[in-house]
Amino acid sequence: MEQLASYHRRRQALYGWMLVSPALILLTLFAFSPTIATLWASLHSRGTIRHPSAFSGWDNYANLIADPSFATVVGNNLLYAGVTIPASITIALAMALWANAKIPLRGFVRGAFFTPTMLPMIAAANIWLFFYTPGLGVIDAITGLFGLPPVNWLGQPQTALWAVIVVTVWKEAGFFMIFYLAALQTIPPDLREAAAVEGAGRITYTRRILLPLLMPTTAFIFINALINSVKLIDHLFILTKGGPNNASKLVLYWVWEMAFAYFDAPRAAAMTVMVLLVLGLIAVFQFRVLDRRIHYR
């Protein structure tokens, strides 16, 4: 009996490891080992034919941080996150409340909100390019009706990043809407009636009952929006290429540029390590603070 149980245990262990190993191998190849390799590369100098790559400690980091572009790009990304996250969450909530209300043409409304989610970022950027084109674009055509001069939205440092932000919000708000929509559908309608009986108006009901009940959803969306503010950079390739003069450059785009346009892998690695650190902090924050009921069972 004892022997049978131990045989059974060993077989379970063997099969378990066998089943996870393909996934584990690929994750090692494309997630874990690249992470370690990035850290390693960030601590070594860029090799040339005369001077092979050598250990250089924190040099890459120091150089990177001393570069004036660093403050600009990180600042841009902070602004990008600081605007796109609250804006897309607020709009998503309004969309969900409306898409959940009993209004005519609700199917069309839902579809309209969600459609940008289905588009590649590149296509979205192409579409918005017509809006921003100076002199020709749709926005200038409209402001021209009021006698305003044409504006080069993407070409001047004051507006380029904002133009990029608008596209991002347009793209992700509809995606976040559906999470709110799902949460709203689990809230019993009796609550609204009870609140009405107690004399609570629309605004009180939304503020005191709906928003607190939607908090877990908001937290989930917040994390996603935060990750998106690192990840969503495809439209930069079409709209601004980070310019003018770095005014709309975001961190991941800069990493791409350092590695694949200037071939400075060690610097790209140092920047990547910093991004990974931030993502790690976000992960810890999510698991420790937001998601204490996470299912590790």
Partner: peptide, 18 residues
């Protein structure tokens, strides 16, 4: 689960080498 945060997008340089 850590891979949920180590985005493939961020590791482009070393993944390219791989």
């Amino acid at each position: 689960l850590m891979q949920l945060f180590i985005l493939p997008e961020v590791l482009i340089v070393e993944n390219y080498a791989m």
